[in-house]
Design a protein around this nucleic acid. Structure first.
Lengths: 223, 223
DNA sequence: CGACTCCTTGAGCAGCTTCAATCGATGTGG
DNA sequence: CCACATCGATTGAAGCTGCTCAAGGAGTCG
């Protein structure tokens, strides 16, 4: 599920069970920068990210933007509320998704396993959003950035010798809007982590965690 | 659902359908200050608030607290994630709840209508949490307080002549932890709204909205 | 009446934002 | 191939918002 505080590494569930292939799963490709759906669209499908990364955003009347989540492979996105999408979904890189008819969520559409998997994903999503609320409500800028890096590297990074490395597909502004900060503050926090020897930056988009214990400590914050 | 940004006044759904009475619904009373469940508890039931108000909270290691939501009559609370509760639930006043076995959420437990209603509630909850994220990430202190008052009065207040009035069962500290602010800031915002003639305070716990249009405007924020 | 709790108000400060300039990477045309 | 334009990231300086710390007020309950 999404990028949130809880860094448990869930296995990527494959909802694409044999039974549901014919009835439910319509695979699709989405070029970087293209939208999968917009806020207000009627929900016909829920989606599972198979490859790539998407960004879910919501806008406020006056142009302020909140990044709700980043969707990585395995994540289910597009849950309806009142039959409509409540966020925009855009691919950050070329992305592959699987579409499931909404009926699969509502009553299974003849596939009880798929129904249960989607329900579980929705319940996980509630918890994930609560984590996000907790972070935005209670953590400092430095703690938020550390939390973000900690989760995204442990969940989606790859080992690079003893360290963990990840290419960030989102820009600083996306991270800022995800964390409720400004790009400048995010950038300054990155720099501070680099100067403290906690992370290394290889260009702006690729980071290596040098001291994951320190990063975790920083993400929790002072006592 | 819960107190969030979206102020639509949903009718209080009665999940207590004739069919489910015997099998699922165990009514219960909860004295003010008593816990319904704690974070980490295994989920045996999900609950619907029938009367009263509950408070859902999550703690951070270092003692910081986030109020996730306030549960009013009609709200469904206690959705599991990984089979466990991810928040504490405490009654703010004497409260009546109905308990539904977890199986009712998972597969209906013989009552498809109940199953669908619980599923819909879970999906609404995702959207509500996203609203909360949006508020915490993007809104100023004054905007958050105005948003809170706007939602809680329109959804749970009662008409008092041409105005709308509500008794707040939660203390300033609860509101602060809900909005990601301090009690002092919440108190100052209340005072500012009172001095601006937008609200009137009758004691600390009872507020009357004098100019709901102005409150709505303030909740949206400057353009 | 006194003790307690919660709310309010004030003063000073810290953290984050705002505004602005520079840097660095990427791409384009001459 | 290099000059230049462009866009995102970084860094700096200054200001404002909201927090911290502290005191006083108001309501409640023994």
């Amino acid at each position: 599920m999404y990028v949130t505080l809880s860094a448990e590494n869930r296995p990527i569930q494959d909802l694409h069970s044999a039974q549901s292939v014919a009835r439910n799963a319509l695979p699709a490709r989405l070029k970087a920068g293209k939208h999968l759906y917009h806020e207000g669209d009627e929900v016909e499908y829920v989606y599972q990210v198979v490859g790539g990364v998407v960004r879910l955003t919501r806008m406020l009347e006056n142009g302020r933007r909140q990044v709700i989540a980043f969707g990585y492979p395995g994540d289910i996105i597009g849950f309806p509320a009142d039959g409509c999408h409540h966020a925009d979904c855009e691919a950050l890189v070329d992305t592959t998704i699987r579409a499931y008819r909404r009926a699969a969520l509502d009553h299974g559409d003849g596939d009880p396993d798929l129904h249960m998997a989607l329900l579980q994903a929705a319940l996980q999503e509630i918890s994930a959003m609560q984590d996000h609320v907790m972070m935005l409500g209670q953590k400092s800028a430095a703690e938020r950035v550390a939390s973000f890096l900690n989760v995204i590297t442990s969940r989606h990074g790859e080992n690079q010798g003893v360290h963990r490395r990840i290419a960030l597909p989102m820009c600083r502004n996306d991270i800022a809007d995800f964390l409720g900060l400004t790009t400048e503050t995010v950038s300054r926090s990155f720099t501070a982590l680099r100067k403290a020897g906690v992370i290394a930056l290889d260009g702006a988009q690729t980071i290596t965690v040098l001291r994951s214990d320190a990063l975790l400590e920083l993400s929790r914050g002072a006592d």
